[in-house]
């Protein structure tokens, strides 16, 4: 099972924003729902021939893990995952989101 590419890895707050690439339908809802507006559509296609969202340049740190994109995504493709065991070990105790 190959690892999902992460859109954002935020070690201080201990979460990361995941995008289930081949399930995404390219409907741009997460782009429109994000309150800080850090997402935009990229020109990368997935197996469903849909454009994938990506984070704007240098805007990773503005993501507050408010999960609005996770709630609004119709195909459950974008979601926040607590950052516990990963290649980059987290020194603090388990981060509670």
């Amino acid at each position: 099972m190959k690892k999902i590419p992460k859109l954002i890895i935020n070690i201080e707050k201990g979460f990361s924003l995941m995008l289930n690439q081949h399930r995404c339908q390219g409907c741009e809802i997460c782009v429109s729902v994000c309150p800080t507006g850090i997402l935009e559509m990229s020109d990368q296609l997935n197996m469903r021939v849909a454009f994938l969202p990506k984070v704007k340049e240098g805007k990773e740190k503005y993501c507050t893990a408010c999960k609005r994109c996770e709630y609004a995504c119709p195909i459950w493709a974008i979601y926040i995952v607590p950052e516990i065991e990963n290649e980059i070990t987290v020194k603090k105790e388990e981060a509670k989101i």
């Binding site: 390219g26 409907c27 809802i29 709630y71 995504c73 119709p74 195909i75 459950w76």
Partner: peptide, 15 residues
């Protein structure tokens, strides 16, 4: 999820 891209029912099911 058998809904079209952009439909709101997928997120209602999740909620």
């Amino acid at each position: 999820s058998r809904f079209c891209g952009g439909c709101g029912y997928g997120s209602i099911g999740q909620l």
